[in-house]
């Protein structure tokens, strides 16, 4: 492993069904994530995905690579752009990752995650610090 190493990229298509599933799993029933009229009423083009759903999905790039999903020490993101989820087409997100830094003595690594939709970043400063084996 070396700084700059790329992690296997993942593409995920989120549908309205996924948003409703996440609402139930997380307890976040904000109407803008499942009701078009409510989303439009607050100035959004359509229903948008929970930022926390995108954040949760994005971490899979890291945990797939890490092998043990419990060895995440820190994980943070900023929410840059809403992910608009069309009723028929859903929204397709691309997640990629690369090793930003390594601490050989502590056996930790910092991974930067890129989360994009049609080439535009939906998350900013998405970074995870992980404990290596």
């Amino acid at each position: 492993m070396a700084v700059g190493d790329a992690l296997a990229a993942v593409s995920v298509t989120l549908t309205r069904r996924d948003l409703i599933r996440y609402a139930g799993a997380s307890g976040d029933f904000n109407v803008i994530h499942w009701d078009e009229r409510s989303a439009v009423a607050v100035g959004l083009p359509d229903v948008i995905a929970h930022g926390m759903l995108t954040m949760g999905q994005a971490l899979q790039v890291v945990t797939d690579w890490l092998g043990d999903p419990g060895r995440v020490l820190e994980y943070g993101v900023s929410f840059k752009r809403p992910v608009v989820v069309d009723a028929l087409l859903g929204a397709t997100l691309q997640f990629a990752g690369k090793v930003l830094s390594l601490d050989e003595s502590a056996r930790t690594a910092v991974v930067e995650i890129a989360a994009t939709e049609n080439g535009q970043a939906v998350l900013g400063r998405a970074r995870a610090t992980v404990q290596l084996a």
């Binding site: 799993a25 997380s26 759903l53 949760g56 999905q57 971490l59 043990d68 999903p69």
Partner: peptide, 23 residues
């Protein structure tokens, strides 16, 4: 399990106690 399914976390350590214990 429900939350792992919702965020696409496929690892069996979220579902199978034996796998989690082995880790």
């Amino acid at each position: 399990r429900e939350f792992a399914d919702a965020v696409g976390a496929a690892h069996p350590a979220h579902r199978d106690p034996a796998v989690a214990r082995a880790l």
